[in-house]
């Protein structure tokens, strides 16, 4: 279990959003402010790590035929826990993310990692996998948020640095459509293109070095 290698994979070469193309619904929907992005990213990281650990603990006990249903129940349990705790202690974030918190249950990343990794590896490795993949998701969300907020609202760090964020682009100039669905699709498309280009370059470099 090489932490550095798994971290590199989680953040870049096997980034859940930009390379594996999972979990796009939430990436497109909530990345309109840094507050949302950080909140969602950290929630998914926590849920992913916890469910990875539990599923890895139970991997020898769960019969194969019902494993998907069992994973879903375990993941739904953690999601509801995070949902309730957020409503009680972070009500503004809960309001902002809305229906996308319970929808973390069907975030393909979590079920995907449970099936592909946690069900076949040790608890320690699964925990590390949860953290690294979660960080990859968080990184993708943060980049999306910064780009969309800057171009669409002209601010940076709305909800995090201050209620409105630091204004970088003056009032009438930001392109409002970046905060709307159009902007989400366009930004993610360009980001994935960039990631694909970067990964290919890294692979070519490695192949040339061999």
């Amino acid at each position: 279990m090489n932490f550095k290698k798994q971290l590199r994979e989680g953040l870049l070469t096997q980034n859940p959003v930009l390379v594996q193309l999972l979990g796009m619904c939430s990436t497109l929907a909530i990345t309109t402010s840094l507050f949302n992005g950080l909140g969602m990213g950290i929630s998914v990281l926590v849920i992913l790590t916890c469910s990875n650990v539990v599923i890895s603990l139970l991997r020898k006990v769960i019969p194969s035929k019902i494993r998907i249903a069992a994973y879903i129940v375990i993941i739904a349990g953690f999601v509801t826990m995070v949902d309730l705790l957020m409503q009680a202690f972070l009500p503004d974030l809960s309001n902002s993310l809305g229906v996308f918190i319970p929808l973390i249950v069907v975030n393909c990343i979590i079920l995907g990692r449970a099936e592909a990794f946690a069900s076949k590896n040790t608890v320690a490795a699964s925990a590390v996998d949860g953290v690294t993949q979660g960080l990859g998701y968080l990184a993708a969300l943060v980049v999306m948020c910064i780009v969309r907020e800057l171009l669409g609202n002209g601010t940076f760090g709305s909800g995090v640095l201050s209620a409105d964020g630091a204004r970088i682009i003056a009032e009438p100039y930001p392109a409002l459509m970046m905060i709307l669905p159009v902007g989400g699709f366009l930004t993610l498309g360009c980001l994935i293109a960039f990631a694909q280009w970067l990964v290919k370059k890294l692979n070519d470099k490695e192949a040339a070095a061999k």
């Binding site: 019902i66 069992a70 129940v73 375990i74 739904a76």
Partner: peptide, 9 residues
């Protein structure tokens, strides 16, 4: 098994 897991959750 499924029922047990659901019950614990």
């Amino acid at each position: 098994v499924l029922f047990l897991i659901t019950a614990v959750v």
